[in-house]
Design a protein around this nucleic acid. Structure first.
Length: 509
RNA sequence: GGUCGAUUCGUCUAACGGUUAGGACAGAAGAUUCUCAAUCUUCAAAUACGAGUUCGAUUCUCGUAUCGACUACCA
């Protein structure tokens, strides 16, 4: 690029509900790009639609980003040199710029009511046509281009409601560049006169607020979803109308995240109907509906971010596991793909398992201690960590660790019927009794030493290792599968091991 | 309907004119193990279609098809 300037990007969600994973990915790519270039990441809240405002949505967005480890340099919570970062608190700014556009002839007042326009739309549709507020139709509608100046003045003074519309050039090719998509040309004849400002609520629409704020906040790169591509020419023209073309940001339109099944882009309303969350955090909608979140499902933020980062971007190497710093180091917009991605829940689980396995036993013990307590298991971090070490690699979620360690902590209350049918034969039980005698002669159980001793004994006696081990496991755990039985016995101790064997011999028929 | 964008294994993707089209998840088989996982090995699996351009197209161009976005006083 011809000019060098500080990289400043923004994530600008509108608080109309929870942030879905597509939004989180957009925030993530913005963050990675900013950090990869030593720049700033801002969080701006675009609450210019008073109708769709949802209480709690903004707090949710901040909390979700924080959970992901995406911390804004400037924004609604942390403030900054361009505060306020909430568009509803910047009203005076937008009127000024909207009027400037009217004065320079790039925009005009329009008095048509929303009702009359939708009636017009319906009428056109009836004829199989599409209504478009543009150079062809605006002369016939009620606006400051068609009405005499005095009439316009009168209506405004009288307090009639009006909007300011952009005066789209009639027929002009707009040449645009997108970092991901390359050069794009669109002719203005296919575009309409978009509303920029509404007197009814004294608020701008997205288009105006967006351009004004990006300019004022010195945004260098706009990285947003592909759904914005059709309005890119409008934005180019707006920068030009303001005389800001030279400092206009560079654009990158990200491919969309698609619904896992069916068609269309992923939306907030998809909630959790696919059997997995679309939101980072559990979302309690104002209407009382609750949608599940990745955090509550047991995803580690690292895994969630890692999984999301690879949905539409790849490092060009075969590395798949990345922490945030690794992503920052590897990220580039040039390696973002052009096509929409369908989210794969199985792969997400795989990422979580990888990250879970990389965590320390102590860390995992801390996280599951409350879950264990809820199941009536009162233990220490050290004890839990020791149990986790035995089962860790077979878990995907922290909750799995609880299930996996439960019958290690708690002596079996019942015994798995299928396994009983398979390994609880009279001779197996007899052999188990003899194994009990052998163990009773020990002073303690050591995972390796005891196993070696028992194996030696089994071979000497000419018994089946598999059979005996299964019976042993069933007696101690109550189930037919699990980690090394000797590791478990070493964990619960000799006394508990013997008592569980006795209980099994007494109970199982 | 119009405008714009996209199209490689089931899914996420690599190969930026020359490869036996690579990897990962999921799937299958095997190894290992006291069992179940984990792990390791192996297998199966794709360039939407049709024309060009070229000595040579996954890659460039055009057309068709399909999918997607947008088409609001929503973002």
């Amino acid at each position: 690029m011809a000019f060098e300037r500080r990289v400043r990007v923004r994530f600008a969600p509108s608080p109309t509900g929870a942030l879905h994973i597509g939004g989180v990915r957009t925030a993530l790519y913005n963050y990675l790009f900013a950090k990869a270039h030593g720049g700033d990441f801002l969080l701006r809240i675009e609450d210019t639609d008073s109708q769709r405002f949802v209480p709690g949505a903004e707090a949710y967005i901040s909390e979700a980003l924080a959970w992901c480890g995406i911390v804004p340099d400037e924004g609604v919570e942390q403030g900054g040199p361009h505060a306020p970062y909430r568009q509803s608190e910047r009203r005076e700014i937008y009127v000024k710029y909207a009027l400037q556009l009217v004065e320079s002839g790039n925009a005009y007042y329009a008095f048509d009511s929303a009702e009359s326009l939708s009636a017009l739309r319906a009428e056109c549709e009836g004829r199989g046509e599409t209504f478009c507020y543009d150079a062809r139709t605006r002369v016939k509608l009620e606006n400051s281009l068609s009405l005499p100046a005095e009439e316009v003045q009168k209506r405004i003074e009288r307090g009639d409601q009006w909007v300011i519309r952009f005066k789209m050039p009639e027929c002009e090719d707009v040449h645009m560049d997108d970092i991901i998509r390359g050069h794009i040309v669109i002719n203005t004849s296919t575009l309409d006169d978009k509303v920029l400002y509404k007197s009814a609520d004294a608020l701008p629409t997205y288009h105006l607020a967006n351009i004004v704020d990006d300019h004022l906040m010195e945004i260098s790169h706009v990285i947003r979803g592909e759904e914005w591509l059709p309005s890119l020419p409008l934005h180019y023209l707006l920068y030009r109308a303001f005389g800001w073309s030279d400092s206009q940001p560079l654009f990158a339109h990200l491919p969309l995240l698609l619904k896992p099944q069916g068609q269309g882009k992923l939306s907030k309303r998809d909630g959790d109907k696919f059997g997995f969350p679309v939101f980072p955090l559990e979302w309690h909608a104002p209407d009382g509906e609750v949608s599940m979140g990745y955090r509550e499902q047991g995803y580690l933020p690292e895994a969630f971010i890692n999984m999301l980062s690879l949905l539409g971007w790849n490092p060009g190497t075969e590395q798949e596991i990345f922490d945030m710093q690794g992503l920052i180091n590897a990220f580039s917009l040039e390696r973002v793909s052009k096509n929409g991605a369908r989210f794969n829940h199985e792969k997400a689980k795989w990422f979580n398992a990888q990250w879970l396995h990389s965590k320390s036993d102590a860390f995992l013990a801390e996280t599951i201690l409350p879950l264990l307590a809820a199941k009536g298991i009162d233990t220490t971090v050290e004890r839990a960590a020791a149990a986790i070490e035995i089962v860790k690699e077979r878990a995907t979620f922290p909750a799995d660790l609880v299930d996996l360690t439960y019958n290690i902590f708690v002596a079996p209350a019942s015994y798995d019927e299928k396994s009983v049918a398979k390994s609880w034969k009279a001779e197996d039980v007899e052999n188990l009794k003899r194994l009990r005698e052998l163990l009773a002669g020990e002073t303690e159980i050591d995972a390796e030493a005891t196993e070696a001793k028992v194996r030696e004994w089994i071979i000497a006696e000419g018994l089946s290792i598999g059979k005996l081990m299964n019976t042993f496991r069933l007696a101690v755990l109550g189930v037919g599968q699990g980690p090394s039985i000797f590791a478990i016995c070493a964990f619960i101790g000799l006394e508990e091991t013997l008592s569980r064997i006795d209980a099994a011999i007494r109970t199982i028929k």
